[in-house]
Write a protein that binds this DNA or RNA. Structure first.
Lengths: 221, 221
DNA sequence: TACATAATTTAGATTAATCTAAAAATATTT
DNA sequence: AAATATTTTTAGATTAATCTAAATTATGTA
């Protein structure tokens, strides 16, 4: 592992996310928007990262991670997600409180600490949002996403996606207090019409129709 | 609390330590040596910190912490020591492995995290080196330092000081593998001559004379 | 007290990361 | 394919933290 600054690590992480794991090239503007910085700053940084051989960059052609850069990005993501588990499980943080702190903790440099932290947490495979935690080699497996109607009574999980992304549907979800990241527990299933009773964020229990439950994908915990 | 950079926090911490808690004025050179930087850099930073009202500084007259600066320094020290306890107690670090990591962790900004961490660790009063952990208000009490000959059999602690600091004595201590920070367990006391059998760093058991045991101060754990 | 020595500050540069505004390259549209 | 719009890069400045070398102030000693 090379010695990268906090800032450089953040750029690599952004490129990783924007390129969906290194699959597609990322534009200067996309990075600038994502990081809330300016395109000119991104160009400068891409030159620097290219000279360190962590990205492949050609003027005007976009950028992507090199193998080396991908590894570095995955280490940071691994750390971020392990710290999130720590914050929720051990420090009793709520989901919406973890992000800012994990953004800081992910840059702590100590391979030993991460090893021990992982052990301490019982080798978790997913973070509190349902995102997979890469192992030391960067390998991970996405958690299966299942529609609510296929979930057993009593099971819970996090909303990770929707099948129907039409405006009326999204508005309906908003109305019932459901969003990507919401915690859902299936309380009951009505055989008669296939509707479900779900508990949202441990707060409100509501009933949703079969049609709705088929279109909300959750990642079980 | 003001928003201070990582660097500014380190300067405040150094001044706190060098001034023994704000008691005496600190010279530019002392800070430069302590931080392994140059005097000119210190002067620049002192101007900056003075403008933020965290230090009292007058050209050529040395510097000390203002009340505000003292509070900030104590927050950082509190965080450092809590993290050290975490690393040793929960992450199974050895004493000599904690410092560098705690230096990084002490700058994490999250009052909630520190509150929860303290609770999680059971409100420890001292860090693994025997140094006191300030509470939220910055209050702390130094741990009593007792000579080895006054310690009960079976008790253990950390070497925190010596009464005799003559060169021959220090050389003797070095020879038997004892140093500030060493872990000592009193295994036996011989009534006949007042000598003690002590276990050093859980490694070697040796016998020391009454005279020696009177001159080594430990902080019990 | 005056001189030499040591400590401290100033002046001017440097590096990393950022920015704005202008120039250049690429994409899109007619 | 030419004209226009968008994206990206370059040029030049800025800020925080640092440095070296020179100038200034303080201290110690004869």
């Amino acid at each position: 592992m090379i010695n990268l600054s906090y800032t450089e690590e953040n750029y690599l992480k952004s490129i990783y996310h924007l390129s969906k794991g290194g699959k597609l090239d990322v534009s200067t503007n996309a990075i600038a928007d994502y990081q809330k910085t300016k395109a000119a700053s991104v160009t400068d940084m891409m030159k620097k990262l290219a000279s360190k051989n962590v990205v492949d960059y050609q003027k005007y052609k976009g950028v992507n991670l090199s193998e080396k850069g991908k590894k570095e990005a995955l280490v940071v993501i691994r750390k971020h997600r392990l710290w999130e588990v720590f914050l929720v499980e051990k420090m009793k943080f709520n989901w919406d409180e973890v992000h800012d702190v994990a953004e800081q903790l992910e840059h702590i440099k100590s391979p030993l600490l991460i090893k021990r932290l992982e052990e301490f947490l019982g080798y978790p495979k997913y973070d509190p949002h349902g995102d997979p935690i890469p192992d030391e080699n960067g390998a991970y497996k996405a958690k299966p996403q299942v529609p609510i109607n296929e979930v057993e009574i009593g099971q819970e999980g996090i909303v990770v996606a929707v099948k129907d992304s039409s405006s009326p549907f999204l508005q309906y979800l908003d109305k019932i207090g459901t969003y990507i990241g919401a915690k859902i527990k299936v309380m009951d299933k009505v055989n008669f019409d296939g509707s479900n009773e779900i508990l949202i964020d441990n707060k409100r229990t509501i009933s949703i129709s079969k049609q709705v439950s088929e279109n909300i994908l959750i990642s079980e915990s």
